[in-house]
Design a protein around this nucleic acid. Structure first.
Length: 562
RNA sequence: GACCGGUUCGUCUAGGGGUUAGGACACCGCCCUUUCACGGCGGCAACACGGGUUCAAAUCCCGUACCGGUUACCA
């Protein structure tokens, strides 16, 4: 029998990080064993389910690239079948009508109320004390025929226990005495969760139920329904929960956007990286390795590798630097820095486009750069990128700023310090636009402290112009007839070094000042490569520009010795 | 309260009778470097507690503590 698993979220909000991991594990297991990964929307709670939420969940799944097999099942479509099942159990005497009037839902916290009631009962409640449990069939039928409202409850036997072998938690047993006669059908005829789940899992021929540990005790109730129906239950595998840093529940209400999948998509995370991170929360392949491709994950995934203890999703509220789990950020940076450039480029393109920084010249001529390049084309393309990535291999000593080759090489250069895709349009903005911001901290540290730079840097620009000025950057290979050198790292270094000596200052002072003016930020790749990448013309322009200087505080009187 | 589950560095985890208890993130230091959030090297840091079994316990058993889940005519 082939394996069929399902991810069954209830559409009462966006895709929660815990649900996303449940979906991932189901997906990985299905793919590992060559089974089917199905999706069922558990929308039986009409009051709370929304279409928008369903869409958001689907969006999240799509972003994570967890494609489901077969049609989506909407649980609400099966309500009639659920009711029929309940009726069947009723006629077989395995369930009974409960004519107890429906209790008014308390207006305070529902969960709190339940716990309170349970505490009051001192845990000695007799689960078989429902007065309608044993009324005669005749009386029950008569009252029902009379229009009296009733809920349908499963008739749990007086003595015995339910048991099942959980693939993660091992043998689970529970005395009947601890399980109430659960409600199958509400008095308004609405099927309840446990009934609906069992019916649908049977209908969908689910073989393995992989879900959160919060359902571990529910499972006993479901086993009871399977037994009443005379059907062998599927294999259950419960997952440890993902908790907040205080080991409490991780919820939208308390923790906000950090728990939503769309947050990560919008924050510039790569799905592959986030998937990788999620996979390692509650599962491990028992090896000293952190980076796993999807194929590796599928290959190595097993139910045996799932943990039994909850995992903390570590983040610090109100700390922008640690707004989400450090390891997730690191993982994303790792992907951005080390994944094949050809795979990264489409994501960078999308980011630059949405920031209005994209230019069509960045597209390789005659080819559309998309995420799905066929293999032969992709190979040719990759070797081209390899060339661009390896400065030494480039025939030209200067790349034309704004060209495709320049673009690819720039991305290869700047990605080494980036954490998210957003960095390409934020920190990296100065590479693609003249309209970029200056980080006040960078100005304070690299410009304000050295007042002489205000005259030095424009002077450096003059020097650049004199040294490199009439080199034809548009056809840099043609060098004959020109008296000046090409604007390359090596030549730039010579010029800047002698300039520094003339001014009797440290190289760092000049370089850092220039970096701030040229890029607006205090960090980045080697400054020589930044000069080269920004290009001669723009470098000169920016060194002369007074934009950043305008932000210098008026009381700055520090000398260059500072 | 009752029932069920869990407990290895701050966090994610490896290890399941004999290990200097390993890795990753974070943090710190050094190196590289003009800067840096890149890179390299190194450091700090953990078996919840108490009993037992055993020549030997992080590992097996019992208890305690703590944490979590469930206890709905929610899902």
């Amino acid at each position: 029998m082939s394996v069929r698993v399902r991810f069954a979220p209830s559409p009462t909000g966006y895709l929660h990080i815990g649900s996303a991991r449940t979906a991932l594990f189901n997906y990985l297991y299905a793919k590992h064993v060559g089974g089917k990964f199905l999706l069922r929307i558990e929308d039986t709670d009409l009051a709370r389910s929304t279409e928008e939420s369903t869409r958001s969940i689907l969006d999240g799944m799509k972003w994570l690239e967890l494609e489901h097999d077969e049609e989506i099942v909407f649980q609400s479509d099966n309500a009639d079948k659920h009711r029929a099942t309940a009726r069947k159990l009723l006629t077989e005497g395995k369930a009974y009508r409960d004519f107890t009037p429906k209790a008014e839902p308390s207006d305070q916290n529902v969960k709190e109320g339940i716990a309170e009631r349970a505490r009051a009962a001192q845990g000695v409640k007799n689960m078989r004390d429902n007065p309608f449990r044993d009324i005669s069939e005749v009386e029950s039928d008569a009252r029902a025929a009379n229009g009296e409202p009733f809920a349908v409850r499963l008739k749990v036997a007086e003595t015995g226990k339910t048991s099942f072998e959980d693939a993660v938690y091992g043998l689970q047993e529970r005395s009947y005495a601890d399980t109430e006669d659960l409600v199958l059908l509400r008095s308004d005829g609405h099927p309840l969760y446990n009934l609906a789940v069992v019916c649908d899992d049977i209908e969908m021929r689910i073989t393995h139920v992989i879900r959160g540990q919060d359902h571990l005790t529910n499972t006993h109730k479901q086993v009871l329904i399977y037994e009443a129906l005379g059907i062998t239950p599927p294999i259950f595998a419960h997952l440890p929960l993902i908790m907040a840093p205080n080991k409490g529940k991780l919820s939208k209400r308390k923790h906000g956007e950090v728990v939503s999948m769309t947050t990560y998509r919008d924050a510039g995370f790569l799905a592959a990286a986030f998937r990788n991170f999620l996979a390692l929360l509650g599962w491990s392949a028992s090896e000293e390795k952190e980076i796993y491709s999807l194929t590796e994950l599928i290959d190595k995934f097993s139910l045996e590798g799932i943990h039994r203890s909850n995992a903390v999703f570590n983040f610090t509220e109100n700390d922008p630097r640690k707004w989400t789990d450090d390891k997730a950020i690191w993982m994303n940076a790792e992907y951005i820095r080390t994944m094949p450039l050809a795979d990264l480029l489409p994501f960078v393109k999308a980011e630059l486009k949405s920031a209005k920084l994209w230019r069509d010249e960045y597209e390789p001529e005659g080819r559309a750069l998309t995420a799905t390049i066929d293999s032969t084309e992709s190979q040719a393309f990759e070797s081209e990128i390899e060339i661009a990535e390896r400065p030494a291999a480039i025939a030209l000593d200067v790349l034309e700023v704004g060209s495709y080759d320049w673009y690819v090489r720039t991305i290869a250069l700047i990605r080494t310090r980036f954490f998210t895709l957003k960095d390409f349009s934020a920190q990296g903005r100065a590479y693609f636009s003249e309209d970029y911001d200056f980080d006040p901290a960078a100005i304070a540290k690299n410009l304000n402290k050295f007042a002489d730079l205000k005259t030095w840097l424009p002077e450096l620009a003059d020097r650049f112009e004199a040294e490199f000025g009439d080199a034809d950057v548009s056809s840099p290979t043609v060098r004959e007839g020109f008296t000046t050198k090409p604007f390359t790292e090596e030549n730039i270094e010579t010029v800047v070094k002698s300039f520094t000596e003339e001014k009797a200052t440290k190289l760092g002072v000049i370089m850092n000042g220039a970096r701030t003016l040229l890029t607006g930020v205090a960090v980045g790749p080697s400054m020589l490569s930044v000069f080269e990448t920004i290009g001669m013309e723009r470098s000169i322009l920016r060194l002369r520009s007074g934009i950043a200087w305008a932000e210098i505080l008026p009381d700055t009187t520090l000398s260059s010795h500072g």
